[in-house]
Nucleic acid binder design. Sequence first.
DNA 1: TCTCGAATAT
DNA 2: AATATTCGAG
Length: 365
Amino acid sequence: MDYNQEECGQYIEALEEERRKILVFQRELPLCLDLVTQAIERCTKEITETATDNVYGQSECSEQTTGQCTPVLEQFLTIKDSSPFNEEEVEEEFEDEQGNHDPENDSEDKNMKSDWLKSVQLWNQPDPLLPKESQQMMETVVKRDESMREDAMANSGERRRRETERKQRRCWSSQLHRRFLNALQHLGGPHVATPKQIRELMKVDGLTNDEVKSHLQKYRLHTRRPSQTVPNNGNSQKQHFVVVGGLWVPQSDYSTGKTTGRATTSGTTTTTTTTTTTGIYGAMAAPPPPQWPSHFNFTPSIIVEEGSGSHSDEVVVRCSSPAMSSSTRNCFSKPTHIFKSNPKPTLFFLSILFINKISILSLCF
DNA sequence: TCTCGAATAT
DNA sequence: AATATTCGAG
């Protein structure tokens, strides 16, 4: 039964991941969102019920590594204006930043936090013992550092070195990236938005044009059409890709009913192998948990592109592929357990899939 | 001079 | 792979 619970937990995690992504499509897939939410609720309920049956606090599911990290998040994002965008949808997107958590997202949130915390530490914080520093503080620390350095340099007469020194690497936390995405969305997609505009819309303290530019460049690279992205190991014959349930699928495979994503769920290491074959939009092989924070599987928001590349003539509606794909994959890759233990969510799931497809189709026409 | 995008460096 | 820097163009 512990086993069952654990699986349930994973399942919930996946669902939450999913929900977060669907949130982007709130308008397009309201029902879908609703269904996933319900599914999550249902599962959590189930899990808490069984949990309370067990010894209290045994369940490692939703409650994992709770505790002290909650407030850290907001501190890290020093933002001038608390509501950068006025649309409700966006606000909702940001609501976790503002501090009012809805319990569903909480655990996921924590995951994200810890993860990007790590990354922050990785880049900016040589001392791993200070995980709670706010960005502001870090900045001041950095400044202090710099000034000290400057002093030292003035003393040692090594001023030149300072100019050649590289600036601190900007760590694009998931939150920051979300802001970025939102800005993009507001500006009409990555190919229209310019760094300056984006920066202005993001309203993040200390963020520079250059940083945004660089990030944007990478983002654009990642969001290029798969066929163009990779010179593909030899088989770079132009394949036609079709969006199926959020997946980029070579048309041939789709029509024959196969799914492309060689979901190399090779046990523990969660490889995103497909990237190599289908570009970033390939069926994501990465399983739910580490997906987003593990440094950018760029999850584009709704991006409607007219022939994003110079030589494509089709209109492409990208539906943040990894979003759907992960769940789809999960659903198919380990159906037996999940389906056995949680028959009801399965129904939700199927209906979600169904709705996804319908709405995606309707988007196309 | 500013901004941008691409190329290149770290 | 992610970010920074450089360079040329507008």
